[in-house]
Design a protein around this nucleic acid. Sequence first.
DNA 1: AACCCGGGGGT
DNA 2: ACCCCAGGGTT
Length: 382
Amino acid sequence: MDSPDFSEEKMRPVVQPVYIARAIRMNKAQQQYFTRRLMHWHTTHNGRSLPWKEEKDPYKIWLSEIILQQTRAQQGLPYYLKFTEAYPRVKDLATAEDEEVFRLWQGLGYYNRCRNMLGTARYIHHDLEGKFPRTIESIQALKGIGAYTAAAIASFAYGLPHAVVDGNVYRVLSRYFGIDTPIDSTAGKKEFTALADQLLDKTDSAGYNQAIMDLGATVCKPASPDCLACPLNDKCFARKHELWNDLPVKSKKLIVKKRHFYYILFLKDNQLWIRKRTGDDIWQNLYEPFLVEHKAGLTTAELATHELVKPLKLKKADLQLSGRLFQRLTHRVIETHFYLYRIKNTPAALPTGGKWVSLKELNKYAFPKSIISFFEKNAYFY
DNA sequence: AACCCGGGGGT
DNA sequence: ACCCCAGGGTT
């Protein structure tokens, strides 16, 4: 006999199917009303000011879009200013040293963006004579540019009629039109992209794309949306049915895994042993001290006998625990321990691929945020 | 389709 | 504690 399922998942308030208007089948007048009200708000009430708005240089627009991927405007802003000052033209970025560019990117996260950005800058400089591509297909073919970024560059730089679909757009459209198709599904991406293209004001695609993203960022916010200030509040589905907390819908649940990192900071004559992270893992291309990762927590004694540590024949008494921190990432919690080990006589048999770097030169290398935090707490470094 | 990637801010 | 952010790449 089946018992009723009162699990939280089943009890989650869902959008009632009877209310769902398939916006894709909505008549043209309703769509034009949405666009007209949005554009009117943009020209009269949108006071959001950011340095990449009104920018016409495709290179700088591209730079801003890469920096802003999955990153709040306020967090990306200082990086945009640093990069445009250090590299005013694509040639400047293309001819810069890897280490210098990663150092500028340090702290921003998603470091493959930086790798792809450098590759694309060099491709444009060397193979395209410094000229940024001008069609949506050729823009999206560049490394690090997907559907959103291609539409953004095409509309902002060239006025081409392509609608952006980012987190803001999913939120505004799902709420206004009452669409509960999960935005992290293939069907959802198709449905929202098709609707966005229909709503686009083709006479001012740049203005329209700015408008809908600014509305999502400043009015139709994820939590506590400011519906009273919204130009679309009279016909908004989510407002009418009080469903702003239930839209948009995501289908996948986030799984947070825990990792345990043990850094041993080998010091010798005011030098620190570091190496570049490689392989298919977090923090690719960043530097770090000697790392031991284990599935679970380790005591100092257990660390000393770990298979990566034992061959180094360390004196356990000289292994000094100097710091510990938890780092919360989107889908990881990383517990990190920092040990100091001063080498006096015979150098330890450290792995190949690393190098000794003067403490004064550490600021030339990019490190993960957790390691920077440890350096900053210990004036010995920096 | 599922899973990977960072760090910061809001609630 | 959880969600989201001017997403994209790989398997």
